[in-house]
Design a protein around this nucleic acid. Structure first.
Length: 480
RNA sequence: GGCGCAUUCGUCUAGGGGUUUAGGACACCUCCCUCUCAAGGAGGAGAUCACCGGUUCGAAUCCGGUAUGCGCUACCA
């Protein structure tokens, strides 16, 4: 069945009509994995044949997303818009062989025909009027100046079947297929034509594409047949759905892949997560490196069922990868997010040495890099802003006042401002004040960070430094 | 409406005739650790394997039907 035994050539063929979402990129990933696993070739082809829906910058975003994830391609990107003569040539050949015909029907007629059919509960489809035009009728239409489209002559009876590598044997009755358009009146090919021509010319061995193409496959088979070409192997991938089980789209929050990058997800986590959406290694392995996935990837472990995208699990996995980073690497990756999201009044560029001190305190607390600025803001601002009420959530005002005063007194005399020394004076002080550590440290936490939840107190205070801590403790006193 | 595909815990999935009282993961709950939040550790709850028939000594696994979901049904891809 394979056209060239053993040689794997696959392609990712997005159309630049929008930004790539998880489903698109998962298709890219599976193609890439398949190529890398077999030592094959991964080709990138931009299917920009829909002039009306073309989105400015979409191609760049697609390329960026692939690069970000490390899905490197070996050939391309080819652009179908630069290959129009090729498709026209093939269409002409089909016309000459009488396997296709010119259709002069107006969009208006097609539209009203469809409405009529729907109203009568008939399957909508082209009624083949132009398939049976006489010579005179054709000449007349030609003279009227209408630009025709080229339609494929679908067989009226019989069946078309093919073997999908994931779903097995699939059969369609030809009677359910209409005479679809190959070449549009603007001179551009439709997906069906361009896709088949390019897959053949580029010697694609396996087509791994989304499930939504399954219904179009018999047309493609018929085209291959008409052209006398051998079709590639086919594998239709299960779709990725939103939480509401509908096709993934903008409505489901960040749908475009570059938004995940901007939200602080790591490409390696993304790869791991996406690989597991529709593919699995076994009954327990969840964490796989890119190389491990490449090594183990195979079509027969791809599921047939559409998968709902589960952001909680992505967050969990991203957190895992974040924690697995070397501290230095974590800081390197978090820095751009700090520069981007910390309040504007904080001086840029940020102090790299200071960041290095802070990072160990947040690495295990962040699920995404974008959370880092929020988690560490109090380290950078002059005075943390908070509601004075937070100081008295666990203590009476008088107790809080006493505790803060005592703390300031003790800390002013402290020689070494490090976590161990801080703990060695503050822990006994809790006893002296007759407070539980939770109450006392909680108070100091609010005073120094402005929050009730933050990294461990003594380490935080060490990083903040003596001056800043004492200043903040006095400020808290003032608030009471 | 027609055609196609799919259907295992809320979600991702394992399992593809007996080893299954259906395994793992996320989320959830409890406990431990603990100065808070995390992280980590230990447990728990959660699936009559969509339904109905059939094949078989035996079915989540095979077959048929039904239902439901999704996709396609464009001079979109």
């Amino acid at each position: 069945m394979a056209r060239s035994e053993g040689i794997v050539r696959v392609r990712f063929a997005p159309s630049p009509t929008g930004y790539p979402h998880l489903g698109n990129i998962r298709t890219a990933l599976f193609n890439w994995l398949f190529a890398r696993h077999h030592g094959g070739t991964f080709i990138l082809r931009i299917e920009d044949t829909d002039v009306a829906r073309l989105v400015e910058g979409a191609t760049d975003t697609i390329l960026d997303s692939l690069r970000w994830l490390g899905l490197d391609w070996d050939e391309g990107p080819y652009h179908q818009s630069e290959r129009l003569e090729i498709y026209r040539g093939v269409a002409d050949q089909l016309l000459k062989d009488e396997l296709a015909y010119l259709c002069y029907c107006s969009l208006r007629r097609l539209e009203s025909m469809r409405q009529e059919q729907t109203k009568k509960k008939q399957p909508p489809g082209y009624d083949r009027r132009c398939r049976h035009l006489t010579r005179e009728q054709r000449a007349e239409l030609e003279a009227s100046g209408v630009t025709p489209v080229v339609r494929f002559k679908s067989p009226l009876e019989g069946q078309t079947s093919f073997c999908d590598l994931i779903r097995g044997e699939i059969v369609f009755d030809n009677s359910t297929l209409d005479d679809f358009v190959l070449l549009k009146s603007d001179g551009y090919p439709t997906y069906h034509l361009a896709n088949i021509v390019d897959d053949h010319l580029m010697e694609i061995s396996h087509v791994l594409r989304a499930d939504e193409w399954l219904s179009s496959t018999p047309r493609h088979m018929l085209l291959y047949q008409a052209l006398g070409w051998q079709p590639p192997n086919l594998a239709h991938l299960p779709m990725i759905l939103g939480p509401d089980r509908a096709k993934l789209s903008k409505r489901h929050g960040a749908a475009a892949v570059d938004e995940y990058r901007d939200q602080g997800y790591l490409p390696e986590a993304m790869i791991n997560f996406l690989a597991l959406l529709g593919w699995s290694l076994d009954d327990k392995t969840e964490l796989l490196s890119r190389q491990e996935i490449v090594n183990h990837f195979s079509l027969d472990r791809i599921s047939k069922t559409a998968a709902v995208f589960n952001r909680d699990k992505l967050d969990w996995m991203n957190g895992l990868y974040l924690r697995g980073l070397k501290l230095e690497e974590f800081g390197k990756r978090a820095s751009p997010f700090l520069e981007r999201d910390l309040p504007l009044e904080i001086e840029r560029p940020l102090d790299a040495g200071y960041i290095r001190q802070i990072m160990p305190l947040v690495q295990e607390r962040a699920k995404t890099l974008a959370e880092v600025p929020q988690l560490t803001e109090f380290f950078f601002v002059d005075k943390p802003e908070y509601d004075a009420g937070l100081l008295t959530t666990k203590l009476e005002r008088a107790e809080a006042l006493e505790a803060l005063r005592a703390s300031v007194a003790k800390l002013e005399e402290l020689q070494n401002w490090d976590a161990a020394s801080l703990e060695s004076v503050l822990r006994p002080l809790a006893d002296e004040l007759n407070l539980k550590t939770g109450e006392f440290f909680g108070l100091l936490r609010v005073a120094t960070t402005g929050r009730t939840a933050a990294p461990p107190l003594f380490q935080t205070m060490e990083v903040l430094g003596r001056e800043r801590c004492l200043e903040r403790l006095r400020a808290a006193l003032g608030k009471l």
